[in-house]
């Protein structure tokens, strides 16, 4: 969220300035306008700086800690480098237990990447149908889906576990994947976006040209909704990536763990097996890289998408 708020706040800044200048021109009391503007500007900058620091210090600490040997971790300045051993640490992490960490990263990418793609397609179809077709019970369905947004995923984990136990699907890939492809919030966003960005006239036109509903959806509508769908994808990607409770309840086999759960399992035994501490630190550092890359690549779309939603 902080990345989204940042640019908005800065773009709001120049808007303050002209108004200040205008007032300065109108009124004889010299300095009043500019002072206010400088004051509010520095104030805003200060608040932003404090928050940036607040968000970045833990990551900085993580980065620094990942470069240290186990001994230096406690005996040297926690916020500055000692003996630089990042690459040795990464090597040790990747070698630990036959590279199980890499497997966790791949699992996470699979759960989050594939899960978010499927969830986005499902949400897009559902939201589009709710926006563009009239059928009895449409609002009821929409309201029920909307209600689903309010139910926290954590509360559903245990019922899901009991359900999956019935069909003997616990401790499989599907136990984490299937619940991840459902995104009520995505449906809600898709409906709003579809209403805003897909004109009915266009649909009429494509119908007249003889395109079927499914073809229209995949060739015309989905392109119009694209920036919005990126938003849905990003939301769902992050949600699945961070969903730790579901794997905790569902999975028992190490080779199926996503990286969050794997690191948690290691971290829970660091008191007994201290060599794991370095692995947890370096592992955490590496595990945020895919998220950062995803955000940097898709951030542009995301902002447009959020804006579209906000207008409605």
């Amino acid at each position: 969220m902080s990345t989204a708020i940042g640019p908005d706040a800065t773009s709001a800044m120049p808007a303050v300035n002209p108004r200040g200048v205008d007032r300065h021109g109108d009124m004889p009391s010299v300095g009043r306008g500019p002072r206010e503007s400088i004051l509010s500007r520095t104030g805003a900058m200060l608040v932003m700086a404090v928050f940036t620091l607040y968000f970045l210090v833990p990551i900085w600490w993580l980065l620094v800690a990942s470069t240290k040997s186990r001994g230096d971790l406690f005996s040297t300045n926690p916020l500055w480098f000692a003996d630089f051993r990042l690459f040795e640490n990464i090597g040790a992490l990747l070698a630990h237990r036959d590279g199980v960490y890499l497997k966790w990263i791949l699992n996470s990418l699979l759960y989050a990447g594939l899960g978010a793609v499927v969830a986005t397609i499902l949400a897009a179809m559902c939201g589009y149908a709710l926006a563009k077709y009239r059928f009895p019970g449409r609002e009821t369905i929409f309201n029920i889906v909307l209600g689903g947004v309010l139910v926290p995923a954590t509360a559903l984990a245990l019922p899901l576990f009991l359900l999956f136990s019935r069909v003997q699907l616990t401790d499989t890939f599907w136990a984490v994947f299937l619940p991840s492809v459902v995104s009520p919030f995505g449906v809600y966003l898709s409906r709003v976006f579809a209403e805003a960005s897909v004109p009915d006239e266009l649909l009429e036109a494509s119908r007249l040209d003889g395109a079927g509903e499914i073809r229209t959806f995949f060739t015309v509508s989905i392109r119009l909704m694209f920036p919005a769908l990126i938003t849905v994808f990003l939301f769902q990607f992050v949600t699945i990536w961070n969903n730790f409770f579901l794997p905790l309840i569902m999975l028992r086999s190490e080779e199926l763990f996503p990286v969050t759960y794997g690191l948690y399992a290691w971290n829970s035994t660091v008191n007994q097996f201290p060599e794991l501490r370095t692995y947890v630190l370096v592992g955490s550092l590496l595990s945020i890289i895919p998220l950062i890359i995803t955000f940097l690549l898709l951030q542009r779309y995301w902002r447009t998408g959020l804006g579209t939603g906000a207008l409605k």
């Binding site: 029920i144 209600g147 689903g148 309010l150 139910v151 019922p159 899901l160 299937l178 459902v182």
Partner: peptide, 10 residues
Amino acid sequence: MRHTKRAVTA
């Protein structure tokens, strides 16, 4: 609400 979500998932 929870029932519906569960039903969908089921």
